[in-house]
């Protein structure tokens, strides 16, 4: 099993609903976030292009954050989901430095936190909170090993990219372009 997410940049409007939904679902304190939205505009008026992307931990196959963790708090869980075990984490910040996407942050309680792909929901067969709320339905989630999962199906029909492939982390969040 390999969980992955695909996000359609042609549909995302940058509303940030995915961010609030994650906060209320996962008790992310106000002032912190596990996902965020980036807007990139290129060109000169009126020859313009804007790409909007909702970003989060990429649950990398080759994740430096797991490797550099001195206690094993950062680890791969079921389906390749990268998780942090709260009471194994010493809050050293190494994993924060190791992530090319700045996907992690130190929770006010001291441990390092980040997107969990909403493992608690996924286990119950639900979609991650951000996917479930997105008004443009531009996010697809599922198991890459299952050819019928929404994410496998969409990746078959659309062009896509990952972020900073040259960092060599093998991300599992795909951007449809």
């Amino acid at each position: 099993m390999r969980y992955a997410m695909a996000i359609d940049t042609k549909k995302c409007v940058g509303c940030s609903d995915c961010v609030v939904a994650c906060q209320t679902e996962n008790d992310v304190p106000i002032g912190y976030c596990r996902d965020w939205v980036v807007e990139v505009t290129d060109g000169t008026y009126p020859q313009l292009e804007t790409e909007i992307r909702s970003e989060r931990c990429n649950h990398c196959d080759n994740s430096p954050c797991v490797r550099c963790c001195p206690t094993g708090a950062s680890h791969y869980a079921e389906g390749g989901i990268v998780l942090v075990t709260k009471n194994e984490c010493i809050g050293c910040g190494a994993c924060i430095q190791s992530c090319p996407y700045d996907a992690r942050y130190t929770h006010p309680d001291g441990y390092v936190d980040k997107c969990t792909f909403c493992m608690h929901r996924v286990k119950k067969g639900m979609e991650p909170a951000c996917v479930a709320v997105c008004p443009t339905k531009c996010m697809y989630f599922g198991d890459l090993d299952d050819p019928n999962s929404p994410v496998s199906k969409i990746l078959k029909t659309r062009k896509f990219k990952v972020l900073a492939p040259e960092a060599g982390t093998k991300p599992n969040v795909y951007y449809l372009i």
Partner: peptide, 17 residues
């Protein structure tokens, strides 16, 4: 001009800006 910004107000302490 290329403009790249975070529009969801991300301000994780220690990470941003």
């Amino acid at each position: 001009m290329r403009e790249e910004i975070i529009i969801s107000g991300r301000m994780n302490p220690g990470i941003d800006p």
